Simulated scan of single mutants.
Amino acid sequence: MHADLPAQLALPPAPLVFVDLETTGGTFGVDRITEIGIVEAGPQGVSQWTSLVNPQKPIPAFVQQLTGIDDAMVRNAPTFEELAADLLDRMNGRLFVAHNAHFDHGFLKGEFKRIGMRFVPDVLCTVQLSRAVYPAETRHGLDALVERHALVPSARHRALADADLLWQFWQHLHRAHAPELVRAHVERVMRRFQLAAHIDEETIERIPAGCGVYVFYGDDDAPLYVGRSVRLRQRVRSHLTGPRRSAKDLRLAALVRRVEWRATGGEIGALLAEAQLTAAVRPALNRAPKSRPGDARGAPWLHAGAIAIEERDAATGERAFHVIDRWQYLGTVAALSDALALPASANPASFDLATYRILAERLARGLAFTPLTLDAPAHAAF
């Protein structure tokens, strides 16, 4: 069924699919989909699609009572695998809109993954959108939206009927508010799962939450940018998505093809690793360090040999030891006993200004460290 798109709707750049599912229960990986309903809205107009789905397992009695979908209705329905190719084509490249979108997106993502297909649309949750637009309201469930905004349900707890309520809510927002306001709220609550080139949300979720460094690479695997953060995953995501991106971030997102990262066990480790990586790979978009008053090239090393600086990552609790010798950062290890696997000493002729800048003042202020010997690390009391 097709209809013309109402005028003056502030659609995002991608067309929209309003999606609702009925399932055998609420547990990902255990329960299965019994019905899918989709309302598609875009420049070509509005259309609807729905199908029962054979879950290949019994539907619990309380779910049958809630949805009206029983075992007999789905017995001869197509399985998800039989629907998957057409369904993915129907939703691919469109903004996925659902109420409590974590549920619907999570079920579909799991079903596609089970049969070896990748499903990474950008996602907009209408619960979060309602909270953003109407912060004074306390209830944002679908029944509350129906009551508050005079939406017209054709049924409840059936997939297409509930998807249509989301489409009605979307239209209400554009009748009741300026397009610029709606766009701003949509941008604020939207979750971008396809972030840049081949970097998607699954990649981002593998990045540690705590301190670390990252490298963005572009075409031909050329290093573009080295950065650090005490919230590594959040920082990488912020480069690639969000309404507050800088011009530099917008340019970076257009160029990035892949990202590498390394946990550093703390903020000092992130500073040291960032300086080391920047010097090693010479990324195109990092600024060259400027000279500062007080820089002391060749400043004397005031210790008998290498030292280890212990840190704990505030976000993860992980412990790390950063090994330094003669103002050179030799690496980070998880235990003092592992320090002997690093070079026994630095090149006496070398002086790393970046390491000096990071550590000289901290050590002068009494930053605790453990002296190391060639034979074994000495466990000095801090």
Rank of each mutant, 00 (worst) to 15 (best):
L255R: 13
P135H: 05
H303L: 07
P283D: 03
D122I: 12
D104A: 07
V152S: 13
D31G: 04
G68I: 09
A380P: 01
D71N: 15
R191K: 10
A150L: 10
R319Y: 00
R326H: 08
T241R: 05
G93E: 08
F18G: 02
I268T: 10
A14P: 06
V333W: 09
M117C: 13
R139I: 08
V333Y: 03
L173G: 03
F62K: 03
L87I: 07
R192C: 11
L142K: 07
Y356C: 01
A209R: 12
A314H: 08
I324V: 15
S337M: 08
Q64F: 01
T355E: 02
S246N: 02
A7M: 06
A77D: 05
A85N: 09
I309G: 02
T79D: 00
A3D: 13
V63G: 00
V97A: 04
R94V: 11
F382K: 12
T50V: 05
D352P: 01
R297S: 08
A253R: 14
D295M: 11
A77P: 08
D104E: 12
D162E: 05
A344I: 03
V123Q: 06
A84W: 08
F62E: 12
R114H: 11
I38T: 01
L330V: 05
R362I: 05
K109N: 10
T370Y: 13
K290E: 15
Q128M: 08
L173P: 00
F169L: 04
G26C: 12
G331M: 07
L173T: 10
D352G: 00
R235L: 10
K109S: 13
P55A: 06
S51I: 03
F28N: 05
L181N: 01
R319K: 13
L52D: 03
Y356K: 03
L367I: 06
V213I: 14
V30R: 14
W170I: 03
A247D: 13
A315W: 00
Q44R: 15
R32K: 15
A254F: 01
S337G: 11
D162F: 10
F382C: 00
F28Q: 09
Y134S: 04
S246C: 02
A178W: 00
Y329Q: 01
A163E: 04
A101C: 06
F369C: 12
L285P: 03
V123P: 09
R118F: 06
